[in-house]
Simulated scan of single mutants.
Amino acid sequence: MNLSSAESGPPPEEGGWTDFEEFAAHCGPRLLRTAWILTGDRHLAEELLQTALARSWPKWRRIRDDRPETYVRGVMVRVHLRRWPRRRRGEVPYARTPRASLPGDRYREADPDDAMRRALRRLPPRQRAVIGLRYLEGLGVEETASLLNCSAGAVGRRTAKALRTLNGALAGAGLPRR
């Protein structure tokens, strides 16, 4: 299944999805983007999406007519939040990627998109999930709260804290705040 070539949009039929493979091919790119937002890594995102689809497939007959994309997205969020503490203990990431660069390459250091990616990766998993779901996926407070199994107030608090952290990280990198 090639997720990058599938189109996004509404289901092909009025009554909902009938075929799981069609659903996965059609909605896969959006779900993969959500997984990347959660993990910050292409390979972990693919693994997370595959796990969520594998867990959703046995329930397909029940979920196919009732917002299956939201269901799979919720599975991804729950799986990611449960796995993160276990993975985190064994890994110690470098602050900077050990790449060779030319001496005096100031433009490489001032890349705002790279600075934002690094800042997002440093957020705790629930704050990263809130920022990803709210601002990058465009979900509302209530839907985000439902996916994260928390209150709307908790979403607001996590959002505010994450935005303060991101603003501080961008200012520390010498870039204008967003």
Score class of each variant (00 low, 15 high):
Leu139Met: 12
Gln127Asn: 02
Pro29Trp: 01
Arg62Pro: 13
Leu120Pro: 05
Asp113Asn: 15
Asn167Val: 10
Leu147Ser: 05
Ala145Asp: 07
Gly74Ile: 04
Gly28Gln: 01
Glu22Tyr: 03
Ala6Phe: 07
Ser146Tyr: 13
Pro93Gln: 07
Asn2Trp: 12
Ala119Asn: 04
Leu175Val: 08
Gly153Ser: 05
His80Val: 04
Pro93Tyr: 05
Leu123Pro: 00
Glu22Cys: 07
Arg30Thr: 02
Ala52Tyr: 01
Leu170Met: 08
Glu91Pro: 05
Arg117Lys: 13
Val79Asp: 11
Ser146Pro: 05
Arg82Lys: 12
Pro124Asp: 03
Val72Asp: 01
Pro85Glu: 09
Leu148Cys: 12
Gly172Lys: 10
Val92His: 15
Gly104Ala: 12
Tyr71Asp: 02
Arg87Gln: 13
Arg87Trp: 11
Glu47Ile: 05
Met76Trp: 02
Leu38Gln: 01
Asn2Lys: 13
Gly140Trp: 10
Pro98His: 08
Thr51His: 15
Gly138Lys: 10
Leu120Thr: 02
Leu81Val: 07
Glu69Tyr: 09
Trp60Tyr: 11
Leu32Gly: 00
Leu166Lys: 04
Leu133Thr: 00
Ala145Trp: 04
Tyr135Gly: 14
Pro10Arg: 10
Gly15Thr: 15
Ile63Lys: 07
Arg64Thr: 05
Gly153Pro: 01
Ala35Leu: 01
Asp65Met: 15
Ala52Phe: 03
Arg121Glu: 04
Pro112Cys: 06
Cys27Ser: 09
Gly74Met: 02
Arg121Ile: 04
Gln50His: 11
Leu32Met: 05
Ala45His: 07
Ala35Asn: 01
Arg33Val: 09
Ser101Lys: 12
Arg157Val: 06
Arg55Phe: 11
Ala129Phe: 02
Phe20Asp: 03
Arg122Trp: 07
Pro125Cys: 05
Gly132Lys: 03
Asp114Pro: 08
Ala95Leu: 12
Thr159Gly: 08
Thr34Tyr: 12
Arg87Asn: 14
Arg126Trp: 03
Gly15Arg: 15
Gly15Ala: 15
Gly74Ser: 03
Arg82Thr: 15
Val77Glu: 02
Met1Lys: 03
